[in-house]
């Protein structure tokens, strides 16, 4: 039974689902490479929210569960996201130098 005015795991999961979905839309449908990267970061944020929500409601875990592993996981996701962003932006700058655009619809030399 969920009390009417309380916030549960499901609440957090729904929020994360919304953010992940919006992130997906942005990542798939934006033309600017930087904007696509924004979408990806939002997706990763949603993942972090999910991990932390599960950690917080840790009494849900069976004995031997490790709620803090979720926090550690998030730390690694943050690290990887930062590294990925750095390389992605470097790549975008590299592409820009060659073509003066970062528009993915116009970066289309490769096709059969």
């Amino acid at each position: 039974m969920i009390p009417a005015l309380s916030v549960t795991l499901a609440h957090y999961l729904v929020v994360s689902a919304l953010i992940f979905g919006i992130g997906t839309v942005i990542a798939l449908s934006k033309r600017n490479a930087v904007a696509v990267l924004m979408g990806i970061e939002l997706m990763l944020n949603a993942v972090n929210l999910t991990l932390l929500a599960f950690s917080r409601f840790s009494s849900a875990f069976a004995p031997g569960g490790e709620p803090l592993s979720g926090h550690v996981f998030v730390v690694f996701v943050l690290t990887v996201a930062a590294a990925e962003a750095a390389v992605a932006l470097a790549m975008a700058v590299l592409v820009y130098r060659q073509r003066e655009t970062v528009d993915l619809d116009r970066i289309n030399l490769l096709r059969g």
Binding site: V47, T50, F54, G64, P67, S69, F73
Partner: peptide
């Protein structure tokens, strides 16, 4: 995202 749910359910 899949990993997050797996972790969430299994707790490890």
């Amino acid at each position: 995202y899949g990993f997050a749910f797996l972790f969430g359910m299994a707790g490890t």
